[in-house]
């Protein structure tokens, strides 16, 4: 008996979280007169909203931009994060602890303080409306360093010593020896970084003005806020769907990793 209540609550909960997304997708492929109906199954498929969206905004270009930006940031964060994490966990050098505490401190620093000066830096570097402006400030991430440091600590020293005897340089050790043994850390940092940069919108709104350089969330935001959707709900929802879909698809496949990664940020606090 109690069981049934559990399932009722869980089911209501699941509907609450899923319904808006299902509606979004079905309304975006519904014929125009059905869009406002909050239906789940359109009477027939109609891709007009998508056609209009492709006409109105360079969404394909924005998708490419987002891909380039998010992938570059993710690769950068993985490479630099593991380099620094390795030095901090496995090497002895003067100032190591100081650097570690510096990293911890920067994690607590609210971004609100650096927002304006960082924008001015980008302007002075001439990086407004460029990939550099979107990528470079995000190439380093304190949390990823901490995570790599933590993970590398758990790898047996023997492995590293053996590699050294074989004449491996430190860079080789990081990428050939440690990386294959740190897949969970790489996945966690990779997912977190990719997701965060894919969904980032405030920074893009600040440094990108040229429509052909805009990232997907920025383009969709401006499209939704500005007048160009010309009050056509279907087009807006089509844009939202296109923005959400890549992450949702990735989530369907790597659901467990997504949940673990996100949860680990909380647990590390």
């Amino acid at each position: 008996m109690k069981r049934i209540f559990y399932y009722i609550f869980l089911f209501v909960g699941a509907i609450t979280f899923l319904y808006p997304f299902i509606w979004m997708i079905s309304a975006s492929i519904a014929p125009e007169n059905e869009i406002g109906n909050l239906i789940l199954f359109p009477s027939h498929l109609n891709f007009n909203s998508y056609k209009l969206m492709f006409e109105k905004i360079p969404i394909a270009r924005a998708f490419l931009n987002s891909m380039i930006v998010s992938s570059s940031i993710t690769i950068g964060v993985l490479v630099f994060g593991s380099m620094v994490g390795y030095a901090l966990s496995r090497l002895e050098f003067w100032g190591r602890d100081a650097i570690f505490y510096l990293i911890i401190f920067t994690m607590t620093l609210p971004f609100q303080i650096t927002l304006i000066p960082q924008y001015i830096l980008i302007v002075k570097f001439g990086w407004v409306d460029s990939y550099f402006g979107l990528i470079v400030p995000y190439l380093m991430n304190a949390l990823s360093i901490i995570m790599f440091r933590q993970y590398f600590k758990s790898i047996p020293q023997d492995l590293i010593d053996a590699a050294r005897i074989d004449g491996c340089g430190e860079m080789r050790i990081i990428f050939r020896i440690l990386w294959p043994n740190s897949i969970p850390a790489i996945i966690t940092v990779g997912i977190l970084t990719f997701m965060a940069s894919w969904n980032e919108v405030l920074w893009a709104l600040i440094v990108i003005r040229d429509e052909s350089m805009m990232t997907m969330p920025q383009l969709v935001t401006l499209f939704a806020v500005g007048g160009r959707a010309e009050s056509q709900l279907g087009v807006k929802l089509a844009a939202a769907t296109i923005l959400a879909l890549p992450i949702i698809i990735a989530y369907l496949f790597f659901q467990k990793y997504f949940i673990q990664s996100m949860a680990s940020t909380g647990l590390k606090e």
Binding site: L18, F21, V201, V220, L243, I247, I248, Y251, F258, M262
Partner: peptide, 8 residues
């Protein structure tokens, strides 16, 4: 699901 989807 909503956690991973963009706030936009």
């Amino acid at each position: 699901l909503p956690v991973i989807v963009s706030g936009v």
